[in-house]
C-alpha cells in the first residue's frame, strides 16, 4: 500500500495545471473526518488568508489590513483532491488554471499590464 506524506510532498508544493502553467502553491490542506474510518484528504487550499492562518496572529491581522486597504475580497481556492493528477516535484491538476480562482489576481493584473506598451509583443521574449 502506498503512502503520501502530506506535509513533505503536498503542502507548499507548486501547483500546475494541465498546460503546465503555475497556479500557486498548496497553502493548506483540509481533511475530511469520517466516523469509524481514517481521515481523507478533502481539498487543497490556495490563498493568502490560508497562509496567514498558518503563520499566526500578526499575519492574520496584516492580511486583514491589506484586504481592508485595497478593498480586495480575499479568496480561497478550494481544489478537490480528486482533481489532482500527479504528485511529483510539482502537483499537476486536471484543470485549467485560468478558469479557477487561483489566478484571479494574475488575470486582474493582466488587464492593467496589457495597457502598458511593450507588454504583449515579442522582442526576443518567448511567446508562451
Amino acid at each position: 500500500m502506498s503512502s503520501l506524506d502530506l506535509v513533505h510532498d503536498v503542502l507548499d508544493m507548486q501547483l500546475v495545471d494541465r498546460a503546465g502553467e503555475k497556479m500557486g502553491r498548496v497553502d493548506g490542506i483540509t481533511l475530511e473526518l469520517r466516523d469509524g474510518e481514517p481521515p481523507r484528504v478533502a481539498e487543497l487550499l490556495v490563498g493568502g488568508t490560508v497562509l496567514a492562518d498558518r503563520l499566526g496572529g500578526w499575519m492574520v491581522a496584516l492580511a486583514q489590513l491589506f484586504a481592508h486597504v485595497t478593498g480586495a475580497k480575499p479568496v480561497v481556492t478550494r481544489v478537490p483532491f480528486a482533481v489532482v493528477q500527479e504528485i511529483s516535484s510539482t502537483i499537476t491538476l486536471d484543470a485549467q488554471g485560468g478558469a479557477t480562482s487561483a489566478l484571479r489576481t494574475e488575470r486582474w493584473l493582466d488587464r492593467i499590464i496589457c495597457r502598458i506598451p511593450g507588454s504583449s509583443d515579442k522582442s526576443g521574449k518567448e511567446q508562451k
Partner: peptide, 20 residues
C-alpha cells in the same frame, strides 16, 4: 516563494504578478 508564474523570458503580460 508564492508559486506565481515567473520568467524574465516571458512577455510581461504572461507573468503579470511577477512583472508588476
Amino acid at each position: 516563494g508564492l508559486g506565481w508564474t515567473w520568467s524574465e523570458n516571458l512577455r510581461p503580460s504572461r507573468d503579470s504578478r511577477f512583472s508588476t
